[in-house]
Design a protein around this nucleic acid. Structure first.
Lengths: 151, 151
DNA sequence: CACGAACTGCAAACTATTTGCAGCGCCGGT
DNA sequence: ACCGGCGCTGCAAATAGTTTGCAGTTCGTG
């Protein structure tokens, strides 16, 4: 596999960045990790480990390795975990440049996902943190409803 | 066990209401269901099924039955499910009178939970729903951070 | 180019949650 | 107060998602 750059850079980190961050942590740039990153890069919405694994069809990569790779990518801050309330972890690439913080609008019937780019909670979050003496406060927020097709 | 009323009615529905709602759904008022309801009534924060089961020590009630009871109570709208991002379901009694909608501020180190009574997302949610053509939109929101003791 | 640390596949272990089944108990009707 | 039927429960086993132990393989540095 060459070191060439990809033609379509939908979103998020690229191979070079991955290699770089991995090196800094005494981690290795391996096939499975590239595969997982690639898979996420081609996905528009959060993917479950199982989905990621399925998308790798052909390439040899154990599901357990997908989990381990996601852990690494997550530790490196290149991937973010989301919960859609069904107890299944979903992962999405962190958008390049930004901190990647955003939310989703999920159809409870067909599972369709809309990415919401804005986050309006900064001020409210700050207020809550202060009021309760908490520090380093973050939040998880997802919206659920019926999409136009499912109403 | 008598049919007497409890002396401390912290929050949420009581036995009479449970019996009433159950009857309406051709469901039965059984020991385990009362136990689960009681247990939740004495809890100030969302409880995992395992915690609920543990709190029932002494009373015979299978963990599977706790799950089933929670499902029933949830269907009846007397109990609400929360996700704290660790993939474990937690349940809380729906506050009496109100719709019970609220959020939590959770310490990521000691798991302490602060109940947040207000919800500030109504307007934002409405805007998002409209903008995307969704209906019957709800949301799940939890805040995470370090509590004063853990900083 | 060799070496060691990191990584992978495979299988087994775990944890949370659900389900099949046979017997028991609640509740409306009598 | 009693009966009968439909839930409901306990128990155990099945699922489903995720993690882990181990032995062999690979990456990246010296």
């Amino acid at each position: 596999m060459g070191t060439g750059h990809q033609h379509c850079q939908h979103r998020g980190a690229n191979l070079a960045e991955l290699a770089d961050r991995l090196r800094r942590g005494a981690r290795k740039l391996t096939g499975p990790r590239q595969l997982v990153l690639e898979s996420l890069r081609h996905s528009r919405h959060p993917q479950t480990p199982k989905e990621i694994h399925a998308a790798l069809a052909g390439q040899p990569c154990d599901l357990a390795t997908v989990y381990r790779s996601l852990k690494v990518l997550s530790d490196l801050g290149m991937v973010q975990r989301f919960d859609f309330g069904d107890g299944i972890a979903r992962f999405e690439l962190v958008a390049e440049g930004r901190d990647g913080h955003h939310h989703h609008l999920i159809c409870t019937r067909c599972a369709r996902v809309v990415e919401l780019d804005e986050c309006f909670l900064d001020e409210i979050q700050q207020r809550i943190a202060t009021a309760n003496g908490f520090r380093a406060v973050t939040h998880k927020l997802e919206f659920f409803g019926l999409c136009p097709d499912c109403q």
